[in-house]
Amino acid sequence: MAFFITKDCTGCTACQRICPTHAISGEKKQPHIIFDPACIDCGACGRICPAGAVADPFDRMALNIPKKEWVRPVFDLDRCTACHICIDACPANALDAVLQKVKDLHPYPVLTREPDCMGCGFCAAECPLDAVILEKNSNS
């Protein structure tokens, strides 16, 4: 099951550029296609598509959302155990483990490459302790 692109695609290449698994191909100004086996259902293509030409695996049209309104992870360090499951789950490689607490040498996750974050929420979905909270970008 994967996202797919409808005939409304204008070939702007925005989805192709943001796809973390390089699953989208197509010429500029030509309809693009998603290579099913490589799609991980992060939904970034749908959020970024200005033509609203992307449908999710349940045939619902994905909603175009301005990038500044995409959700970002915030980490609750009182719950976090520094297990790094969220860091591995991030398909955009936007998180890093960084020392944060005084007198605590455990490196906790931080969104170090915020522009790369696609708001997919995999970090929050994977966290066993619900220590990742998704919030709208503070700049929005």
Binding site: A82, C83, H84, D88
Partner: peptide, 11 residues
């Protein structure tokens, strides 16, 4: 020790 090292999924 400068920092601790966690393997994947290790609390």
């Amino acid at each position: 020790q400068l920092r601790k090292f966690h393997c994947y999924s290790c609390p």
